[in-house]
Amino acid sequence: MFSRTLLIPFGVGALALIVLPAIVTVILAFTLYDAQTAPIWRGNQNFIDLFVIDPIFPIAARNTLIFTAVATPLRVLGALGLALLLSPERRGARLYRSGAFLPAIVPEIAYALAWVWVLNPVYGPLNQILGAFGLPQPAWLGSPDTALSGLVLAGAFQLGEGMVILIAGLKAVPNDLYRAASVDGAGRWARFWRITLPLIQPWLAVLLIRDLLWAAQGTFTLTRVMTLGGPYYSTLLMPLYIYEEAFDRFRFGLGAAATVLLVMAAAAATVLAFIALRGWGFDDEA
């Protein structure tokens, strides 16, 4: 209906900033490259190195898997809970929504730094609160047993963007449907499962994928500021591992190979999420 020329800037950007770098990364994954001298072809040796020689890569992969499996559902369910609570137009709802959204726009480096302080074992507010209630006060980022939980906690409080997306979905559900269901005698629970959930599926799907990708790939700033992967590699997640391989150890080929594996895993997870939620009207008029 509108001229396709409107897509030119986006198309150029997508090619130059995403597609082209992706191709370069795939090629580099098969080379030995230190960014000083020309890359040397080494076939699939990088991939073998990752699994056989490098002792750290399996740890980073395992941590990322755990983090993704825990943080993704927490963030999606958290955003859904917030959206369900705050989407009805009640007194004060606007104010509550603004308050709930606010943490989403704190610059990530500042947000991560604030969490380092909150999780400080001795002076941090969280342990002071726990202590006041006589609860155990873990060392959080100081101990390999709890450090990853600390990261999950920081991630689980970033719900603003997800909430906004889901409120938009909830508002798109026609009120007539609820009225008709009430007339037919459907209770709250039935209305939620039979009407709300199916009709906000497109938004829920986008949110699930977004949070999945964030947990797998978007944690660089969080780990870099909060833990640097420690203690004892307990919080080393893939983005930080890739960064360190490339920019600290100048093993760009190895970093690229790890990136390729990460993207493939993320793509597989995305496709799985899609299949699992088959029949969702993702492409429908929302």
Partner: peptide
Amino acid sequence: GWRIWLYALVALMIFPASAFWLARYVL
């Protein structure tokens, strides 16, 4: 077209920033 582009946008979201750091630098 709508359907294809929706999938394309989601597909573009799959590539992580870490995939771009070095390649974009070279570019």
